[in-house]
């Protein structure tokens, strides 16, 4: 039997909001250690890696490892049925053909069950090697969302240039060009407002706005985002999910022809 309970269903809602624009379906690998999802978008340009640790759940039981193929859009619809303060429990039997989402109101006067059919998926699990990155930037997630949104008006891609002066995001297109520079700011009043730049080597990489604007949908999960970059490898855009796990987006860079 598999059972995972979260007092705050809002966390799971936010997780779905953070992946639903990139993934139509994904395999949820459930084991003793927690729930893992790794899936590429349909164009195979980006990869989502989601990890929810078992110890982050309010109750967690997984007797046998399960691989459950789920429709992200269906799951997202079901989670929209949860009240903001509801508790959510995911439940499946061994060799399941479906998974049940159980929403319980805070005063336990309402219990709703939604059963979703699982889908068969042939999905390869890609190994993501440990990489040491030349630049690691931590910044407020709201700021990153804003930069991606604002610069997307100017072009289809954003160039990230990291130097010892700071990080410069720029875009250009038919209307003109724009750039936004951020310098390190560790004196911010609040930790979540800090900009921390750890640069080993300067670099310049270009990424498609379309994907970046999907990644920033994870903003509500965490006040800070971490961007890890090295020449010629995918960008890693990481958001922590409270004390329960993280969501990492990998994005292949663009190159000049």
């Amino acid at each position: 039997m598999f059972e995972a309970r979260l007092v705050q269903s809002a966390i799971l809602k936010k997780v779905l909001d953070a992946v639903k624009d990139l993934l139509t379906e994904a395999t949820f690998e459930c084991s003793d250690s927690g729930i893992q999802v790794q899936a590429m978008d349909s164009a195979h340009v980006s990869l989502v890696s989601l990890n929810l640790r078992s110890d982050g759940f309010d109750k967690y039981r997984c007797d046998r490892n399960l691989s459950m193929g789920m429709s992200i859009s269906c799951m997202s619809k079901i989670l929209r049925c949860a009240g903001a303060e509801d508790t959510v429990t995911l439940r499946a039997w061994d060799n399941p053909e479906s998974i049940t989402f159980i929403f319980e109101s805070p005063n336990k006067d309402k219990l709703a069950e939604y059963e979703m059919k699982l889908i068969n998926m042939d999905q390869e699990h890609l190994g993501i090697p440990e990489t040491s990155y030349s630049c690691v930037i931590k910044m407020p997630s709201g700021e990153f969302s804003r930069i991606c949104r604002d610069l997307s008006q100017f072009g289809e891609s954003i160039t990230f240039a990291c130097s010892k002066e700071g990080i410069k995001f720029s875009a250009s297109g038919d209307y003109g060009s724009a750039n936004i520079k951020l310098v390190q700011n560790t004196d911010a009043d609040k930790e979540e407002e800090a900009v921390v730049i750890d640069m080993q080597e300067p670099l310049k990489l270009t990424f498609a706005c379309r994907y970046l604007n999907c990644f920033v949908k994870a903003g509500p999960l965490c006040n800070q985002v971490q961007l890890s970059m090295s020449d010629d490898v995918p960008l890693v855009c990481e958001y922590k999910i409270g004390d329960i796990g993280h969501i990492k987006y990998y994005l292949a860079p663009k190159i000049d022809d």
């Binding site: 195979h44 340009v45 890609l126 993501i128 090697p129 891609s157 490898v233 995918p234 000049d256 022809d257």
Partner: peptide, 14 residues
């Protein structure tokens, strides 16, 4: 315009 690379290239390479 710059060409979009695919994740596949990096998994092979890594």
């Amino acid at each position: 315009a710059p060409k979009q690379r695919k994740m596949r290239e990096f998994f092979v390479k890594w």
